[in-house]
């Protein structure tokens, strides 16, 4: 008899992703769903999606979800988690959402050590609005609002918010990964899983920054775009653990 070795996670709805070919969102959604399934927390998880391409994340993730205004996902999640500490609460945010309009909410939630899991998808552009410059856009990168390429002294330097968040006393675990190859996807899943575990153990603020491609707005093929993430974007935003202050839970210090 045939054995089923691969199936749709229970936490993922049977809907066709609307994302562009080569976009990382669909991979990351699936990883999230797999992790939620494996941790057995689907029935106590609440997600907060961002404004942007992933605003429709609730069409795919089969968990309770509450919308947030652009940039405010972590503040909304804070309200949910503080009222229901027994729930597992995550936000799903892009670079414009988290590192531009939501900078204050992000920094202060990390500083307070809010017990949340933040999935931060960095593709270096505002995808849904048509490819404008993001805080994470690389120097020289052409976008619809930097047609001649980003000039640091005019348009600002690429902002590495994750590194800043690692300095916040309340952040516990911050890792940067990518979803450009099977190897990186496996690493990303491990990081997402850990970011949920940190919350479930009540340790504090956990964030996974995932470098993701936007072939449509980068005007590249998916393969070229993935190569660019690994060879160019990852030199500006190096992959790896930026902070790990987790501890094994003990009776005194759970």
């Amino acid at each position: 008899m045939a054995q089923q070795v691969f199936k749709r996670p229970e936490s993922l709805k049977d809907n066709v992703f609307h994302y562009c070919p080569g976009c990382g969102h669909s991979i990351i959604h699936r990883l999230l769903a797999e992790v939620i399934d494996e941790l057995g927390i689907r029935e106590k998880t609440v997600g907060v999606p961002p404004a942007g391409c992933a605003v429709l994340a609730y069409n795919y993730l089969d968990v309770d979800m509450g919308e947030a205004p652009h940039g405010r996902a972590i503040a909304v999640a804070t309200g949910i988690k503080r009222c229901r500490p027994d729930l597992v609460v995550f936000t799903y945010q892009g670079d414009g959402d988290l590192a531009a309009i939501g900078t204050a909410e992000t920094v202060h939630a990390a500083n307070r050590g809010e017990c949340l899991t933040v999935i931060f998808v960095n593709n270096g552009v505002y995808g849904m609005t048509g490819g404008q410059m993001a805080p994470t856009t690389l120097p020289g990168q052409k976008t619809t609002t930097t047609p001649g390429g980003r000039m640091a002294l005019r348009d600002g330097h690429p902002l590495d918010l994750s590194r800043m968040l690692a300095l916040a006393a309340g952040s516990v675990y911050i890792e940067r990964t990518a979803v450009t190859s099977p190897k990186h996807i496996i690493k990303t899943k491990k990081a997402i899983r850990k970011a949920f575990k940190v919350q479930m153990d009540g340790q504090g603020f956990a964030l996974v920054e995932i470098l993701s491609a936007c072939p449509t707005n980068w005007k590249e093929t998916p393969i070229e775009a993935c190569k660019r993430v690994e060879q160019v974007v990852a030199t500006q935003y190096p992959l790896g653990i930026l902070k790990d202050a987790t501890h094994e839970p003990t009776a005194d210090n759970p």
Binding site: V46, G66, R72, A75, V76, I80, K81, R84, E105
Partner: peptide, 17 residues
Amino acid sequence: AESELAAINMVMGASMT
């Protein structure tokens, strides 16, 4: 909260529960 914006959005999240 760090701002009035954050405060009202925290209230939004609380209200969702």
